[in-house]
Amino acid sequence: MSVATQDTAIRTGRVMRTLIYLVLLLFVLFYMLPLYVMLVNSVKPLEEITGGGMMNLPQVFTLEPWFKAWSSAQIGVEPTGLSPYFWNSIKMVVPAVIISTVLGALNGYVLTKWRFRGDTILFGLMLFACFIPFQIVLIPMARVLGELGLAGSTWGLSLVHIVYGIGFTTLYFRNYYAVFPTELIRAAQIDGAGFFQIFWRILLPSSGPIAVVSIIWQFTNIWNDFLFGASFAGANNQPMTVALNNLVQASHGVKEYNVHFAGAILAALPTLLVYIVAGRYFVRGLMAGSVKG
């Protein structure tokens, strides 16, 4: 890919090029500004911020706000910091991501390689799931969770995210498997492999790029979700996003902006990490199937 860009890039003059880079640099600065503000203010004592120097570099460097946000800040009524909620989020996200991805892969496998009457209509209906706004499902979902006895539990919250995510993961895997050679499936059938053996032994090992797309997408969405967390979580299993809100929205005492900034960064770190680890597969997976070869 990187080889091709040099040849196909449009040649422009030196002046033009400088101008383009200058504009791009401005954009970069603009986009980096919030991160700068967050980072800089999370390592300052509170007085430096309240003194009006929000854009300044810290005069006194301190990690105190980070520790406080993690382990001792007041969240709601308890001074626990964000750490228990971080683990709540992990407990909710990991099963939800894995299960929704595996189910999406299975759906994609069936919809492309075990075609049946009405499969395109079914897939079309599943696509609707991608367009349903969160707010619409709140009340029916609360009812369903109640019936299942999962109201207020971490599993209930995971279930909501799995159901909501299947539309997306099915879309990804279906499109990926649509260009996966059917002859391979037939060869495996003749070799004697069954439905799940073909899936585990042939299809899944070749699904790396799209699995990464699905995992990143699901992880970011579920980790960052606030509405479902706020609506369906019980007091003991609220996710990180809800806790961060409680931290920042606290209506009593001094607003500790430095702690808020540190907390916000802590809440964003896992998704950042996932991108750094798996990001290079992301574009590759998104592009898979769009161009042959």
Partner: peptide
């Protein structure tokens, strides 16, 4: 798989 046949495909269909 129960017919005791083997098939060679146009695309080879190697895993």
């Amino acid at each position: 798989s129960k017919r005791n046949i083997a098939m060679v495909f146009q695309s080879y269909a190697l895993y």
